[in-house]
Amino acid sequence: MSEPLDELYREIIMDHYHSPRGAKKLDNPDISNEGKNPSCGDEIEVALKVGDKTIDDVSVACKGCAISVASGSMLAEAIKGKSLEEVKKIASTVREMLKGNQVELSEEMGDLEVLRSVNKFPVRVKCALLSWTTLIDCLESLENEKKTKTSTTE
């Protein structure tokens, strides 16, 4: 098997793919948003329970490929229990990283580093981005008290 492929489908990624975290949809989320990549058919729903400026709970329901599922699962793991400010920072850092920009991940974002290898597969960047973009749009709607509208990374 080729090396870059091994880098893309790292064990951590495959583990998240096979047992995604936060996959069970929240019952009464405070806000939720859908993401869709129509040309490839990936569909995702990010739902949040928001406490006093923290993300108390999160679910990411994803129908898609290993990369989009794993990325969504890592998102759920990374943001649960964090403050809204922190989550915004994490999400925009990951988004920049996925887009190939030079960013340093902080210590506690450690695991998310594995998503960086998606850069070597330009056509797959949109798969990894979908959950993060959906989250960012969700947070923006929350902040501006606007209705969410379906996100996409195509």
Binding site: P4, C65, R124
Partner: peptide, 13 residues
Amino acid sequence: IHPHDLATVLDSY
């Protein structure tokens, strides 16, 4: 195997 993952693996060949 999701079709995208399959296409990526095949492309590597």
